[in-house]
Design a protein around this nucleic acid. Structure first.
Lengths: 119, 119
DNA sequence: GTAATATATCACTAGGAACTGATATGTCGA
DNA sequence: TCGACATATCAGTTCCTAGTGATATATTAC
């Protein structure tokens, strides 16, 4: 795994910033979580709506939502029996749009990445 | 792991786009790879320069570079005994800048994400 | 109060991926 | 050609994490 112990030459502050960014991108680096975020780009949704939109199992969606929530990507607001989730920052939408554009141009080269399964 | 089999309700094209984005973000979701990208933001570097800048072991850096390269984030050009790597797209720099800004504001909430170890 | 619904949590499993150390390939200089 | 250097690949280990199914908690409706 990626150990901070290997990054000894860099200043502490930079290591921390990098670790934080890595954690942030990890929130985005899973198809299920991206599907959730994609669904939330069009507006606030309850967990069951997210489950319906993504096809994820309820416990699985709940787990991913917890991660996304703790990572600050989404926020959940309980209303009665429901919990409504939304993107916390419009720049997350920007980010997804930027990457969407980026990948339209580099689709082929990214597809050829064999290090990770397509899943 | 994230299985496309769980995302049955979404259109195929969207599933593929999401999988591609997830793969892209996975390239960014590791402190070692981010350290490499961060080093490359200031310009082209050879592998040994990257090793020196990040403190990664040579085989480890090489492996991460292969992934980054196959994912289209960096490109390597052999020149004699050296291979010089650079970011393939200026928008990758944009992306990192955007996320940097984003995290300056949400630093505390992201730090509280306990789903993944700080590494 | 009791049943039904919405969400979260738990125990568990399987499969990846990030390391390390050793080794292979390839290129330059003497 | 031979030794030194730069990079890539291989084998193997450890740990993480996404998934499942069962269950707990909480809120509404009857």
């Amino acid at each position: 795994m990626s150990s901070a112990t290997e990054l000894l030459t860099a200043p502490i502050a930079k290591v921390l910033a990098v670790a934080q960014q890595a954690k942030f991108f990890r929130g985005l680096a899973d198809p299920s979580r991206l599907a959730i975020l994609e669904a939330l780009r069009s507006g606030t949704l309850s967990v069951s709506e997210i489950v319906a939109a993504t096809g994820l199992s309820q416990p699985n969606a709940s787990n991913h939502l917890r991660c996304l929530s703790e990572c600050g990507l989404v926020a959940g607001e309980p209303r009665g029996r429901f919990v409504y989730y939304r993107l916390t920052d419009p720049r997350i939408d920007e980010l997804l749009a930027l990457v969407g554009e980026l990948l339209e141009g580099t689709a082929r080269s990214v597809d050829s990445c064999e290090n990770y399964r397509a899943d």
